[in-house]
Amino acid sequence: MNDKGIFFVALVGLLAALTIGLIRGPTFIPLGDIFNVILGNLFHPTASVTSTIILDIRLPRVLAASVVGGALAVAGVIMQALLRNPLADPYVIGASSGAGLGATIAQVFFPALGLIAPGAFLGALGAILIAYALARGRGRVEIFTLILAGYALSIILGAVSAFLMMWHLTSLSAIFAWELGGIHGMTWGRLGVAALLVAAGIVITIPFIPELNAFLLGEEEAHYVGVSVERSRLILLATASLMTAGAVYLSGLVGFVGLVIPHVLRRFVGSHHRRLLPLSFLVGAIFLVLADTLAENVPGVGNIPLGLVTALVGGPYFLWLLTRTARSTSQKSWTV
């Protein structure tokens, strides 16, 4: 299949996932009604119960899920290229927790200023830079140090966030829901802010696609082919932070999307970022819309946090990847 065919299939898949998300819920809404409401409201808005459920509850929610999934997957692709390792992901290296802390600080200390989104961005960028600095020994990034540093950072930043929220008299269940991740009570305004962050991140990333490819061959080779390594890396870490911030702002800490989606896609379409980047966005969006629909109504249980679904899918996948990487690394050190 050529590139256009693949993108077309992914796009159709996303539309199908969005439709499933709109149909499924506590009350079942038939497909025909959904089309009637969405198309009908373009011309003359009505305020029936069905149209309220679709337009004010489910549509922002499924769109938010697709923005979160797409943003996390793209942020994962960028981090993996910069670190030359398929294990990097916003959640694993602590960027998500950093975004969470930044958002919490903005909310607790400057509640009136509407600084939550920029706070999340600065928090994500700060966490990435710290993890990166910690893992950067002797000119190269040690991936296992990075994972450990990211893990420790996540716990520390999460603890500080939880402390600030409790101090701010947030209920424990609200804190718990935030840490497990989920898309609750989505509004169009909130979705708009996050979509803006994510769109900015993507637009800045696109011209750096050749640089991302070059980073796959190492920083030295990237330098030889004309990449300004330091500058490109900083810009790309900032765009990954923008996207992580957008995702965390909408959904709290949802893990492993940025790890699983790019890794699976690489097996089918290779690592060239002209294909991998847009496809990761689309497939990440599909995955999260479906995961959120599942989380919203698990048969027999009801509503569970979205983060639980992604953790149960992505966690084992991460462990499997980790053992594979560990094995190949140790084999290399044997043969050297």
Partner: peptide, 8 residues
Amino acid sequence: LDTSFNLT
């Protein structure tokens, strides 16, 4: 040059 990523 080695890379763990699949490029043609």
